[in-house]
Amino acid sequence: MIRSLFLCLAFLQYFTTADSIAQTRSSTINRTVSQTLPKTVKIVGSGGFRGLEAYQSGFLISNKGHVLTAWSYVLDSDVVMLTMNDGTKREAQLIGFDPRLDIAVLKIDVADTPHFNLEIDTTAGVGDRILAFSNLYGVATGNEPVSVQQGFVSAKIQLSARRGAYQSPYQDDAYLLDAMTNNPGAAGGALTDLQGRLVAMVGKELRDSKTGAWLNFALPMEKLTDAIKRIRAGEMTSSSDIIDRPTEPISAALLGFSLVADIVQKTPPYIDRVVVGSVAAENGARPDDLIIEVNGQMTASVKDVLKQFQRTDRDDTVELTVQRGNRFIDMKLQLVK
C-alpha cells in the first residue's frame, strides 16, 4: 500500500503530443476544476461548538437544484444555508435522508444549474487518479470556491469504521484514497476522475474500527444512486427509526424528575417536579431548572431533551447543564451505581 503512494497510472488516450504533455496534464486538471466547481456547494447549518463544525460540503445532482450531501447534525437545523460557487446564498430544504448510507438530499429553488448527471455511471479502479472537491476545514470562506485535492484510489475496501465508540452506519464498499480528503467539513464533497466525472461522495471523518487510523475514503456513487432516487421520489423522508438506538433508553421518569408539559413547538425544557430521594434529587436538580445541555448537546426544547435521552442508554451517565437564575450548574446523573 505504501508503494502505491509512489505509483501513478496515466492513460495514453488523454495525451497526444509529447512536447506539451506536462502542460496538457496540468491544463486537464485546470479545465476539470473550472467545469466542476460550479457544481459544488458549501453547506452551513447547526453546530459550531465543542469541535462540531457547523459546515460541510455538497454538490448539485439535478437541474432542479437537488444537492447530495452527508447526513449529519449539520442538517439538523431550522435553516440550512447553501453557498453556491458564485457566492450566492440560498436556503435549502431537506428532502430526505438515508441513515444507513449516511446521505441526505437537499433542494434549493433554482433552475438549470450546472450539475452532475447521475445517469452516467462512472467508477474508478485502484490506481486511478481522482480529484476531491470539498470545503475541508471551512477554508473557503465567503464566496471563495471550495478546495481541490488530487490523489489516487489506493484500494477498494469494505468500510469498517467508527466515530468515537459508535460504528458508522455505512459498512459497504468504499474507495480508500491516498489524498488527505476526510477532514472537518469535507463530508459530502464530490470525488471525480480527471475528466470531472462523478465517482463518489467524500465520507465523514472516521477511524478504522480495528486500527484506529483516520481513513480517507469516499462512497461510490453506484452504491448511492438507488437511494437518491427513492429519496427524491419521497419514499424516504423520515426513517430515523433505522438508527441504532439503545434498546433501553434513559428517561426523565427513571432519573426521577418530570419536564413541563410540551405544549408549543419549542417548549423551554424546564424541570417541573423532582422526586424526593431520586437520582435527580441526589444530584441537586430542582424544579424550575432550565436544561440547556444534555451530554454536551444544546437543548432548546423539551423535544430536544427527550431526543437526547432516547439516544442514551440507561446504563450511561447523563450529563446535564441547567440554568438556575443566572447560574449554570453541571450535574452527572448515573442510574446504575
Binding site: L7, C8, A10, F11, L12, T122, T123
Partner: peptide
C-alpha cells in the same frame, strides 16, 4: 468506461 482505456502505464513520482 474503464474498459475503453486501452493501455495502462505508470510513471513514478518518487521524491
Amino acid at each position: 468506461m474503464k474498459l475503453q482505456r486501452t493501455m495502462i502505464f505508470m510513471i513514478s513520482t518518487i521524491v
